[in-house]
Simulated scan of single mutants.
Amino acid sequence: MKVKRITGVPVLLLLVCALSIGQTTAFNFQGRLNDGSSPANGRYDLQFKLFDSITGGSQVGASVDRPNLLLINGVFSTTLDFGSSAFTAGDRFVEISVRPNGSPNAHVVLGARQQIMSVPFAVRSANATQADNATNAQNAQLASDASSLGGVSASNYARLNFPNTGNLQTSGNAGFGSVAPNTRLTLSGGPLWTSSQWTASLNMQNASALGWEANSSGQRFGIGQATGGLHFFRTISGFGSTLTPPNVDLRITDNGDIAQPLERNGAVKAMVAITAGGVVARCYNGVSGSSSGNCDISVTQNSAGVVYVNFPFQITNRFWLVTTDASGQQAGVLTASVVPHAAVNSRLIVITKHDGSLEYLPFHLFVF
């Protein structure tokens, strides 16, 4: 066999496909081999080496062997991969050697090395961690060709300030799960949550909160979850500040009850049903949110018809209502009054009467 000429050129179309789809360092190489004056046909062993100079110089990367390569009308096509470090900087030239398939002889170098043009250098973008010579990269935001990115107006892209601040900035609406957000932030869809088929569009960690900017009075309102329930609170602290504690105005407890601090208004502070025997049958402590046991409310029967109801908090400035469950002539509450007591925060004395005489009666007590 007399090999007279081989021509090899990178194929731009195939190269771009390999880079954009595979994201690898390989690129397609196509050439034409003549055996004498005629195109070569059959199978040949080809070997490719990469150098940093058209003559002499140093080999870059390892040799790439392509044995048993089929040539039809002299044309061959194969994939070359010299590794990610092969195209770091400077010109690159490929040297091609050939021999008949299965021949024990050494490969024969075909003519001069051929320069790899600029397009294969794009394989380096898959591993580029920093720009080598970007001395004016700080002006990239002013680039004259940045009016569109991928055919989309640059104004429709969000700007990410990272890692300096970690802020995501956009002058338009942002949507997650929505192709046409109509608010500054639209969340749509997500995995199904509970048997009601709701979708979980937002998930926040425990001990986190949603908050608003301060109003004209300097108060910031927030809703936060922590161990113990869901808290509705106020604070004068700005985000990122821990100088002032939150004022929790309302809380939904872990068991679904509503609790409110004693000094706040709007919710019932206590409800208790007491039997004729002086036992707490049912109760609710609106300050602690407890509805189990005796809700920290104790009862003492003093004398006929006189019952002491002891509360774990002050009720002197609260409203209360007492009603009896008994029926009959003149059945009802004769009087109820709050008296100070050293052992408890507040004591309410309830005196009940039945058929003209003092008698223990079942009653309900409400504190607002």
Rank of each mutant, 00 (worst) to 15 (best):
Ala40Leu: 08
Gly228Phe: 10
Gly222Tyr: 10
Arg124Asp: 03
Phe233Cys: 04
Leu19Arg: 01
Pro246Val: 15
Gly240Lys: 02
Asn317Cys: 07
Asn285Ala: 05
Thr170Lys: 03
Leu71Cys: 01
Val344Pro: 07
Thr25Lys: 01
Asn182Ser: 15
Arg347Ser: 04
Thr170Asp: 07
Ser357Cys: 06
Phe366Gln: 14
Thr335His: 07
Thr324Leu: 06
Tyr284Ser: 09
Ser303Cys: 03
Trp320Tyr: 15
Pro67Val: 04
Phe176Trp: 04
Ser53Ile: 08
Leu70Trp: 01
Gly61Val: 05
Ser303Met: 07
Asp249Cys: 12
Asp325Gln: 12
Met271Ala: 12
Asn310Tyr: 09
Gln301His: 06
Leu243Tyr: 11
Gly289Pro: 01
Leu361Glu: 08
Ser195Pro: 10
Gly151Glu: 05
Leu202Thr: 08
Asp355Lys: 05
Ser63Trp: 04
Gln169Met: 13
Phe313Ala: 02
Cys295Lys: 05
Asn41Gln: 09
Leu185Asn: 11
Val123Ala: 00
Ser217Ile: 07
Thr244Arg: 14
Gln23Met: 10
Ser171Lys: 13
Thr183Cys: 10
Val109Trp: 02
Leu187Ser: 05
Ala207Ile: 12
Val64Gln: 02
Val123Arg: 00
Leu46Val: 03
Ile258Ala: 06
Val350Ala: 00
Phe311Val: 08
Thr227Gly: 07
Arg220Ala: 01
Leu160Ser: 15
Gly56Ser: 06
Ala331Val: 08
Val11Ser: 14
Ile252Cys: 04
Ser188Arg: 15
Thr129Gln: 07
Asn247Trp: 06
Phe27Leu: 01
Met271Glu: 11
Val75Ser: 04
Ser118Val: 11
Gly36Ala: 03
Pro181Lys: 02
Leu334Gln: 12
Pro163Tyr: 05
Val339Glu: 09
Ser291Val: 12
Asn285Gly: 08
Arg264Ser: 13
Phe27Asp: 00
Ser58Lys: 11
Gly175Asp: 00
Thr129Arg: 13
